[in-house]
Amino acid sequence: MPDKAQPACRVEALARSHDRTGFTCGTEALDRYLHHQVRQDADKRVAAPFVLVEPPSNRVLGYYTLSASVIHANDLPEKLSRELPRYPQLPVTLLGRLAVDTPVKGWRIGQFLLMDALWRSLDAAAQIAAMAVVVDAKDKAAEAFYAHFGFTPLQQRPARMFLPMKTVASLFP
């Protein structure tokens, strides 16, 4: 008789039941955030953390955070800013952090989490306007990761990258 199938990993809003203790992604700041600060940010509603968990242990395999934010219109490439209303600031969704546990790196979990974050951002933008998703790439590897998925640098801060919500919408027909 075959073994009962394990439930698939799933992305959930961070809960106290999620096991964050063994998580390590190789970047101390991202590890420290998940271990010590993420719960406070969630409780104070300054970030909405989502975790990929492995049932039944609820071990965190990766995470990301989303927040409402703004960017200055003059930071956008001229071509895009010409298409938008002339407001000094524009609403965006900030993908604040994204990290994957070291033992599962290479399993495309980062890509999966990014797509989940983009989907949630698009869904939220239907209720509360956001014209793009913005990330702050921590290093050159992160810049390359986001560039691979179509994010482009803002003019004034090249490590701050964006993906127009119109492009995000095209990913989910």
Rank of each mutant, 00 (worst) to 15 (best):
L114V: 11
T102A: 15
Y87D: 06
A47S: 15
A144K: 13
M131P: 00
L90H: 01
G62R: 01
M131I: 15
A73K: 07
A68C: 10
P88W: 03
A8H: 02
A47L: 13
H35T: 06
Q155G: 02
L80C: 01
F162H: 12
A124Y: 07
L163N: 06
Q155F: 02
L98M: 02
P88G: 05
L114H: 09
L61Y: 06
D136W: 07
G26P: 08
G150Q: 11
V53P: 03
K44A: 06
S69L: 02
Q6L: 13
G22R: 14
A126C: 05
L14R: 04
S170E: 15
P88M: 04
Q37T: 14
L80Y: 12
P91Y: 01
S170K: 11
T65K: 13
P153I: 00
K140V: 14
H36F: 10
A124T: 00
A130F: 03
W107Q: 13
L76K: 09
A132F: 09
V134Y: 02
L94H: 14
G22M: 02
D31M: 07
R39C: 01
E78D: 12
A142W: 10
Y64E: 10
V133K: 01
P103D: 03
H18F: 12
M115V: 01
P91Q: 01
E12H: 11
A137V: 12
A68T: 12
A142L: 07
P173M: 07
I128L: 15
F145E: 11
A129K: 15
N58G: 08
V104E: 05
M131Q: 09
D3L: 12
L171V: 00
F50W: 10
P2R: 10
F151L: 11
G150W: 11
R59E: 02
F112M: 09
R108Y: 08
V46K: 09
V133C: 03
A132N: 07
V104Q: 02
M161N: 04
S57I: 03
L66R: 05
S67R: 15
R39M: 14
P103F: 07
V134D: 06
F162V: 12
A99M: 05
R97N: 06
Q127T: 07
N74Q: 14
V100K: 05
E12Y: 00
A29G: 10
P7T: 10
S17T: 10
A159I: 01
L34N: 07
Y63D: 04
V53L: 13
A13E: 14
F23A: 08
G22W: 04
D3H: 03
K44M: 04
I71L: 13
T167N: 10
V134C: 09
S170I: 00
Y146E: 04
M131E: 02
L98C: 02
T102K: 13
K44E: 10
L154V: 08
P164W: 09
G106W: 09
P55D: 03
A73G: 08
